[in-house]
Nucleic acid binder design. Structure first.
Length: 459
RNA sequence: GAGGUUGUAGCUCAGUCGGUUAGAGCGUCUGAUUGUGGUUCAGAAGGUCGUGGGUUCGAGACCCAUCAUCCUCCCCA
């Protein structure tokens, strides 16, 4: 059997993992400075927890885990019946009771619903874990990938939207990735739907206008007509997504458009409040990332109800590298009403791909072992072991070459592993109680006392 | 779910019209060099040509199937 890994999954080597950890640590540290607390949930959820939360397309992409014991002959008939039910598109506990998590938001909502009595609200949690989607792998798309989410449950305050925007800004500034944070509000889209054929048309309309920058205005209009909108309604949609200018100009035009629709005005006000607070912060208005009102931004996940976000990297062809929004009643799906929430997500794997393309990773993160002790024989090895232990206790990452070998070979090992120093203690040095410390990059070599090795290494 | 790309040495890839024993660069190993690397030089190992059928006197190349891969659409991070 040829060794292989499942489609759309990857092994991560040391160099890759150091870069990934750099991204994860950056995000984590920013999350924590805003008071978010860590949470981890299981890789598997009950299938019924996940089904029906991500729309029809989403359901198809959920990895379902086959139940155990299906090969039991006594259960044969029942299993076949259950399988038929699955074939008809219905989930069935008899055959697949569990599924791999598809995102971190629904498990978070499930957690909040389960633990509402113990939590302090507003409950602010962050979560950085892999999720799985049975998608066709391609550029920027994996079947196993990591998300980093920060969510607030139990508050409708727009303060959270502002702070989440700031988190996006701070993280991408620290990662040195230029981005645009697009922002919109589902209430505005709801108002548009009200004007154009009713609220239940909202999904169809938003999905169509979401494609604007990809397929162009004419095809969007074709799609809307296909969904049953009248020419007049299509014209309204066109004038809506044609609204251009600065954020303020867009908001003013929207106010004219939806002056008689309270839901729309509410959405516009929410947007304005978030934008004002964000841009009033010193430094935000002039430099760095800005929030950009994007009326064609819709987001597919159907649980969003208010503000919605999406982050796009500038200068790299890549889908969104982050997204999120407000959901009024997420825990309602689990029978707990009245807990509103808002959250954002970072797509670590795409951020990685973008940073790789922009060569935005700092060199310094590739440091592993600091020093390599050459192996010059068994007696020396025994003598070196406690010296290495002493160094490690001082925080110096060091290793001893595993066997006696030509210096040539040991040098090459150090180079391959990007180890900056080698330490040579042979019989002569052993007798004298010294060590030769050589810095590979410069080639300079100094003889030092054994108990002064650490300082020779700069510790 | 639909469409396309590519599968040849550890890696990146040549391989002409179907024709003798399938090549290169990099990497690996050995030596030049018994305690001082990167350069250089000499040499060596490494292949069921993704897999299974078929066409042919003859297949790495052509045909069919299959698996894997990457990409596009759909949708998304």
């Amino acid at each position: 059997m040829k060794p292989s890994i499942p489609q759309g999954t990857r092994d991560f080597s040391a160099a890759v993992l150091r870069k990934r950890n750099f991204i994860l640590q950056t995000i984590r540290s920013v999350f924590e400075t805003y008071g978010f607390e860590p949470l981890e949930t299981p890789a598997m959820e009950n299938t019924e927890t996940l089904m029906g939360k991500y729309g029809e397309e989403g359901d198809k992409l959920i990895f379902k885990v086959l139940n155990n014991g299906l090969n039991n002959p006594d259960k044969r008939d029942a299993v076949i019946r259950d399988f038929d039910a699955v074939m008809e598109g219905r989930t069935n506990k008899g055959i697949t009771e569990r599924a791999l998590r598809y995102d971190l938001t629904i498990p978070f909502a499930r957690y909040v619903a389960m633990n509402q009595g113990q939590l302090t609200f507003p409950f602010k949690r962050y979560q950085m874990q892999p999720v799985w989607r049975a998608d066709r792998p391609q550029r920027g798309r994996y079947r196993e990938f990591w998300q980093c989410d920060a969510d607030v449950a139990g508050s409708t305050a727009l303060l959270h939207e502002v702070e989440l925007s700031l988190i996006y800004t701070n993280v991408f500034n620290k990662l040195n990735v230029p981005v645009e944070v697009h922002i919109n509000n589902r209430k505005i889209l709801g108002a548009l739907a009200t004007v154009c054929g009713g609220e239940d048309m909202m999904m169809d309309i938003t999905i169509a206008i979401d494609k604007l920058d990809k397929i162009g205005m004419e095809k969007v209009k074709d799609e809307l007509i296909g969904k049953g909108l009248s020419m007049e309604q299509v014209d309204t949609v066109e004038s809506f997504i044609s609204i251009a200018g600065s954020n303020d100009e867009k908001l003013k035009a929207l106010e004219d458009m939806f002056s008689s629709i309270p839901q729309g005005l509410e959405g516009i006000n929410e947007l304005r409040t978030v934008l004002d607070s964000f841009h009033a912060i010193k430094g935000m208005a002039s430099a760095g990332t800005q929030l950009l009102v994007d009326l064609s931004l819709a987001r597919g996940l159907n649980y969003y109800t208010g503000t919605i976000f999406e982050v796009k990297a500038l200068g790299v062809l890549m889908g969104s590298i982050g997204g999120g929004g407000r959901y009024d009643d997420l825990t309602g799906l689990f029978g707990v009403k009245g807990i509103a929430g808002v959250g954002i997500s970072f797509g670590v794997d795409r951020i990685y791909d973008v940073m790789e393309e922009l060569t935005a990773f700092p060199e310094s993160i590739q440091k592993g072992t600091t020093a390599l002790f050459f192996n010059t024989g068994t007696a020396e090895e025994k003598y070196i072991l406690p010296i290495a232990e002493e160094l490690r206790s001082k925080g110096v990452a060091c290793e001893i070459y595993h066997e006696l070998a030509k210096f040539d070979k040991q040098f090459k090992y150090a180079e391959k592993k990007n180890i900056p120093f080698v330490i040579i203690i042979g019989s002569k040095e052993m007798e004298a109680g010294t060590a030769l410390v050589k810095e590979l990059a410069s080639g300079t070599q100094t003889e030092t006392k054994v108990d002064e090795i650490a300082s020779a290494l700069g510790y």
